[in-house]
């Protein structure tokens, strides 16, 4: 593994290795040890072309706990055309000696572009590209599910996950579907027909238009944010109608299985896709998802940067 661009680049074993590494790091971080010397001298650049709080802070915390140097590069407001600015930025980062670049970009495929062009030598980690993928979010979700439902071991076989809401615009959903299926979980997408992407039949997942039909059988209820900023077209009549059909509320939560959990990638629209009582309930693991995000991102940084990087191995003639 040289970069982390998409869940589809990972094998099942590699995915499980990331989760196992993260659980070891989480255990160590719970104890006395908060910081490791492992990435001392490595530089991690957070290159964020889109707004983000938790992902950027999470990557920053993860890198700092491994003693890496962190540079935050807020590229927002750049007026240069995308392809060109990305290249120039990459050349700048190369000149500054970045060992890893964590990139969030509004254009799908931006991370891929940065990794495949030979502009810079560092490792590229995709922190969300357009409506394409957000692999570390999927990994932290899988980690959280595994912790609650599979005793923190192995894969996710036998777990049924319902992903509810704006599948169409959601990179979180796309990465989650790929990873959950890779790990053996059953996935069902629950949304109004307008928010289900065309071609969903190729994904080999269940599709339902009714949350009330499905909620009794789910082990994991994953509500997605309604992305109001992308909602200029009429995907559903009103917010109240969406909340009535697809919002998670305490009435619906009474239907859930005894041990099932409620997840949300954040930021939440309380009262729209999830009610305040649901978000703050005993079943909700939403805050834990944020904490797990740091452990998972530490694991990704450790596995990509902790040893000799791919380039260093290639130049010394050793094989991975």
């Amino acid at each position: 593994m040289k970069h982390l661009l998409s869940i589809s680049d990972l094998s099942k074993d590699q995915a499980i290795e990331i989760l196992d590494t993260a659980s070891e790091l989480a255990r160590l971080s719970e104890g006395a040890v908060k910081k490791f010397p492992t990435l001392r001298g490595r530089t991690v650049v957070n290159l964020f072309f889109e707004d983000s709080t938790r992902t950027r802070i999470s990557f920053e915390a993860a890198a700092k706990r491994l003693s890496a140097d962190v540079i935050n590069f807020a590229a927002k407001g750049s007026s240069v055309s995308k392809g060109e600015s990305l290249k120039d930025t990459a050349l700048t980062l190369q000149a500054m000696g970045a060992d890893a670049v964590v990139i969030r970009h509004g254009a799908s495929g931006a991370a891929h572009q940065l990794a495949k062009q030979e502009w810079m030598k560092g490792v590229v980690i995709n922190a969300g590209d357009g409506t394409h993928e957000h692999p570390t979010q999927a990994l932290l979700d899988a980690f959280t599910i595994r912790r609650h439902l599979k005793s923190n071991k192995g894969d996710l076989s036998g777990v049924k996950v319902g992903i509810i809401g704006d599948i169409l615009h959601s990179r979180v959903a796309r990465s989650n579907i790929l990873l959950l299926k890779k790990l053996g979980a059953e996935v069902v997408l629950i949304a109004p027909p307008t928010l289900i992407p065309v071609g969903v039949s190729d994904w080999q997942v269940g599709v339902s238009y009714s949350l009330d039909d499905e909620i009794k059988s789910l082990d994991v209820v994953m509500a997605l944010r309604v992305q109001k900023e992308r909602m200029s077209d009429l995907y559903f009549p009103t917010e109240r109608e969406y909340a009535r059909g697809y919002g998670l509320n305490s009435e619906r939560m009474k239907q859930m299985k005894a041990k099932s959990i409620v997840m949300h990638p954040g930021p939440m629209n309380r009262g729209l896709e999830i009610s305040a009582e649901s978000a703050d309930s005993q079943r909700s693991v939403i805050v834990e998802q944020v904490a797990n995000g740091v452990s998972v991102r530490m694991a990704v940084l450790y596995l990509l940067l902790g040893g000799a990087t791919f380039k260093e191995l290639a130049s010394s003639g050793e094989s991975m």
Partner: peptide, 24 residues
């Protein structure tokens, strides 16, 4: 593993469990 001085010379190693009886 996290404290080795030869980490940079090899591909990343899998972390192994640490457990301290009594916690301290």
């Amino acid at each position: 593993t996290m404290y080795r001085d030869d980490l940079r010379l090899k591909a990343p190693r899998t972390l192994l469990p640490t457990s301290i009886p009594g916690g301290s």
